[in-house]
């Protein structure tokens, strides 16, 4: 997976990822059309399929709205790399199949516009523009299983049906 980095700072909250005034719908396309609007008005014009969002500490803090990872995923972002994630956002992203990686070194070093590749098998993140390589935190086995199933619904489906 390879894409251009779109970089933000610390404490990017779910209210700026998708403001509550747009939560009167659960349509992914409509949500994506307002993604990041209150933090970065140009986001929806500049984001290209495969781009990688890079951020600082506590990404996705605030509300439990799954509309936030849904909007990010639907806007074409292939992966979010952050120094750390707020816990509800973390599990929501895993549950809906939006790839996320916790890697403080990569999140500090990668700059906006850098071309970045990610290998989920190995957890290796490469900043191709800068020629630097990073290793992200590996997922626990249980979470790997959810990811392999393509999200929590499929994981549960296998068990109950």
């Amino acid at each position: 997976m390879e894409g251009k980095a779109i970089k933000y700072g610390d404490n990017v909250d779910t209210d700026v990822i998708i403001p509550a005034r747009f939560l009167n719908t659960s349509d992914p396309k409509e949500l994506a059309s307002h993604c990041m609007e209150d933090l970065d008005k140009n986001f929806k014009d500049k984001v290209k399929p495969g781009d990688i969002m890079v951020a600082g500490d506590n990404f996705g803090c605030g509300s439990s709205r799954e509309h936030a990872p849904i909007a990010i995923k639907e806007s074409g972002i292939s992966c979010v790399i952050a120094k750390s994630f707020a816990r509800i956002f973390y599990r929501n992203a895993i549950n809906i199949g939006l790839p996320i990686l916790e890697c403080p070194e990569a999140a500090s070093s990668i700059e906006d516009g850098d071309i970045v590749s990610v290998d989920f098998e190995t957890g290796v993140i490469k900043d191709i523009t800068k020629g630097i390589e990073f290793k992200s935190q590996p997922f626990p086995e249980f979470i790997k299983k959810i990811i392999e199933c393509g999200g929590l619904v499929n994981y549960v489906k296998e068990k109950v049906v």
Binding site: G62, N95, V153, V156
Partner: peptide, 24 residues
């Protein structure tokens, strides 16, 4: 809803999750 943690006031384990967790 993220503020589900409120009920810890009455000594239960209570936490916010997302819609997919709720569904499952």
């Amino acid at each position: 809803d993220s503020h589900t943690c409120t009920y810890g006031a009455i000594t239960c384990f209570s936490t916010g999750i997302g819609s997919t967790d709720m569904a499952c």
